[in-house]
Design a protein around this nucleic acid. Sequence first.
DNA 1: AAGTAGGAAGCCT
DNA 2: AGGCTTCCTACTT
Length: 325
Amino acid sequence: SGTNMSSFNLPVMSNPMYGSRMGMTDNSFTLLERTRALERGIPGLYLSCFDMLLTEDATWVVKVSEASQTLAMPMNRMEPREEPEQCPVIDSQEQGLSPGLGGQEEERSLEQVQSMVVGEVLKDIETACKLLNITPDPIEWNTGNVQKWLLWTEHLYKLPHAGKAFQELTGKDLCAMSEEEFRQRSPQCGDTLHAHLDIWKSAAWMKERCSVGDPKTTGWFVGEELWSEADSSSSGQPIHLWQFLRELLLKPHNYGRCIRWLNKEKGIFKIEDSAHVARLWGMRKNRPAMNYDKLSRSIRQYYKKGIIRKPDVSQRLVYQFVHPV
DNA sequence: AAGTAGGAAGCCT
DNA sequence: AGGCTTCCTACTT
């Protein structure tokens, strides 16, 4: 079924685990309240928005709460549910144009929100691709890529490990599998994995669509810069550890909880979760046995080379780039 | 217990 | 040969 995408499906929106990587704080809970209207309007969507709200980027907050005011239309065909059985669809034709309530304006803000969410999803996918060194389109994956993706998805959403059940499968195989087949291979999280693969498939489909047509007519403001940048730095050559660390540091939204700048100007950073950073590095380099003991040994090699050093006042898990950007 | 430091050897491209 | 990775011992926080 997944190949027929006459309308744009975003199974993401319904997936409760999409919000699972954030920590619930009192502060964020009030933000949650402010997105209630959204939640009612598009079940599941708020989780993604909620996730976005955790960025340091305050403009999201403004946009979302504005949107929630203008988007307060009922969506009676969908009752709110905690753990959706199937993926609701954000359907650009059919979706929620509540009659009587100044349709066009709503349509526009809805599109805005959709764009926003889609953009966020594409960003996440792009990030994962860089990190795992795989292509965005699942159809191109070999068995190794599939395993990486599984590992990544399991890790990101705290799923039980199911890689074994999908061994020897290529991306093509995976894409051809139904949700039922996923569940057969992994009763606990097959449906979740299938949903996530659907997101990637949708994104790849979108990418193709955006690159074919004129980006300006597609309406997805994300189209270009995200995909066509042909990979900023490390095209081809194996990535260096110091580059990898910098990449993580440049994405505080995704990795701020495991590594962050203490002083960006001076290039001083702190590894907040050593095990996590090591796991990410291991994934990137296909080194499942990577740990902080080994990663830190590699960092220490940089002392002699003058790439990274310990800051003047040495602190645990704190390092400094000798040549800050 | 976890992090820091650096020698030594092995692996991979 | 370079850039880790793996393993290890000694030392510090």
